[in-house]
């Protein structure tokens, strides 16, 4: 009969239980420390409330007392800057935050970027971008050149590089956009200055399909109708997905495309194109809208029929066209 290693198992179980109990005590101490840190953080903010107001909103002269002396005060400062950057739009405040952050937080985030913990590195990158810490631009570019960065880090590093080196961003990174998710590509393109974005729009024909989709989406999101000619030009593409997105961009821009584009969309085999076209009808003169609605009123797809029905149900519509035509369509 096999001898059971009871003693060994007993040692393992007791050892693990003791280790867990020690960790419990450690966690409890950690919680108590965290509570103390909260007290220090609150005290720092309360103590320096007026001086911060003076620095950020009045004279821009940083007092020595404002410089954080420990991690708890540094965290307090981080919170303060974060809430200002996310909630107040003021170039002057942003400049002062950037000046103070470059002076007092630069080393802290430099250390964080070198840490092995992914979460801390991502936090540091977000803050470098939010607080405009350009003294770390070089470190960030070096990091971007590494192949080991995660997707989140890569995206934030691109945002940082775009913020600190916008002149050469397009030529250096145009080929990198395909590595991002479509959401990240759109966010990056949307954050671009108009000048930089126009450079990208000009090169759209040479971009991979996924990036083209994002560029078209962002043209709509930016609500700047000056790029609608480019959209019309792109509509000749055989890529159905691109055509659907172009029509959606026209919808966002609240702008009618050229007649041939609209008619091509109404007659498209793809229901998504027909739906986007139907959503543009409210921009047409009422009589043209009725004519086009006749084509789509009995469409095979229920969403298109629904769209037409909703459009025709608008009370303002009835005034503009003869009731008979509308009534027959409604039926």
């Amino acid at each position: 009969m096999m001898q059971l290693p009871i003693e060994w198992l007993l040692v393992i179980v007791v050892g693990l239980l003791i280790a867990l109990l020690v960790m419990t005590v450690y966690m409890m101490i950690g919680r108590a420390r965290e509570n103390r840190r909260q007290v220090v953080t609150t005290a720092y903010l309360e103590r320096n409330q007026e001086d911060w107001y003076d620095y950020l909103c009045v004279d821009g002269i940083p007092r020595e007392e404002l410089i954080p002396k420990n991690t708890a005060e540094l965290k307090a400062l981080e919170e303060l800057f974060r809430s200002l950057v996310h909630n107040i739009k003021s170039e002057e405040i942003d400049k002062r935050i950037s000046a103070f952050a470059n002076r007092c937080l630069g080393n802290f985030y430099r250390d964080a970027l070198r840490k092995g913990n992914w979460g801390e590195r991502v936090n540091a990158l977000s803050r470098i971008r939010d607080f405009g810490i350009d003294s770390l631009a070089k470190e960030c570019r070096e990091m971007l050149a590494r192949k080991t960065v995660s997707k989140e880090e890569f995206f934030l590093l691109l945002l940082i590089d775009m913020k600190f080196n916008p002149e050469t961003f397009s030529e250096r990174h145009i080929g990198n956009l395909d590595k991002l998710s479509s959401k990240d590509t759109k966010e990056l393109l949307f954050s671009m200055s108009d000048l930089l974005f126009d450079q990208i729009v000009e090169t759209i024909d040479h971009l991979p399909a996924r990036t083209q989709y994002a560029v078209v989406d962002v043209i709509g999101m930016k609500l700047n109708a000056s790029r609608s000619d480019k959209l019309e030009q792109l509509f000749s593409s055989s890529d159905n997905e691109l055509r659907i997105r172009i029509l959606r961009a026209f919808n966002l821009l609240e702008r009618l495309p050229a007649d041939e584009v609209l008619i091509a969309a109404i007659e498209s085999d793809r229901w998504q194109e027909r739906l986007q076209a139907a959503r543009l009808f409210h921009l047409l003169p009422a009589h043209s809208a009725v004519e086009y609605s006749k084509i789509l009123a009995d469409d095979e797809h229920y969403l298109i029929r629904e769209e037409i029905r909703r459009y025709l149900a608008q009370p303002a519509f009835e005034v503009q066209v003869d009731n008979e035509a509308v009534s027959s369509l409604r039926e």
Binding site: N117, N123, E187
Partner: peptide, 21 residues
């Protein structure tokens, strides 16, 4: 969990809350 423990999730939330994305 160790990887994500220190992550400030509010930053991520704010990046995803926009209707466009």
């Amino acid at each position: 969990l160790r990887k994500e423990r220190s992550l400030d999730r509010r930053e991520m939330d704010s990046r995803f809350v926009d209707a466009f994305y």
